[in-house]
Amino acid sequence: MSDDNSVPIGRSAAVLCGVLFLAGALLLLWGAMLHAPTEKVMGNVQRIFYFHVPSAANAMLAFVLAGGAGIAYLATRRSGWDEIGRAAVETGTLWATIVLITGPIWARSAWGTWWTWEPRLTTSLITWLIFLGAMLVRKVSHNAEQAARLASVIAIVGVLNLPVVYLSVHWWRGNHPVIFKRGAEGALTPEMWTAFIAGMIGVTLMHVALLYAAWRTAQLEDAVSARERLMEHEESAG
């Protein structure tokens, strides 16, 4: 650790993050672009599926983590939980954004329209809006403590409402296309399953790397803020 910085940069961890991200991206690309066969009806556009579904799963995972960190922060008021929550909201919003970009590309090819009120896409849009709200609250807060407290509340309210959002959107839209129906026409072939699992692992590895980087950034931001407050205090005292 250097003398002028209380939080180490962690060069080896940064390198590991980069390696993890690259490995994940390569695994995803191998599965989606090389291993998976071209789907008969949709053609190459179907390959988005290997990126789209893992992105949605990782977004949900991040939001659940953000909700859990929010509960832990409000219970303990330890800034470490807020740093985890902040990182999780950021990465979750990123993956949800990818879902909302890749979903319409899929929809255009599969259903002939850029947007459809398909349950999963609609749930993703609502979830994305909820967590953008959490990021916005943090941005307009007056201080770090208030930002952590209020963003935690939004994350908890958002996460605990997610099952109701999910169920009501599914009930609202009635029947929807089922992708994972074993034995049915259009079900995934063994190669497609391998590509899907590779995509799932690949995106999760990328997510772990991004989450770590976002968490370290949050730690450094807090350390800089603490140092600035200390300097202001010293200046006003001196």
Partner: peptide
């Protein structure tokens, strides 16, 4: 700001 925060969470109430 209140609309931004409430309406997405309130979507199940509005649908139902």
């Amino acid at each position: 700001m209140l609309s931004i925060l409430v309406l997405p969470v309130a979507s199940p109430i509005l649908i139902a």
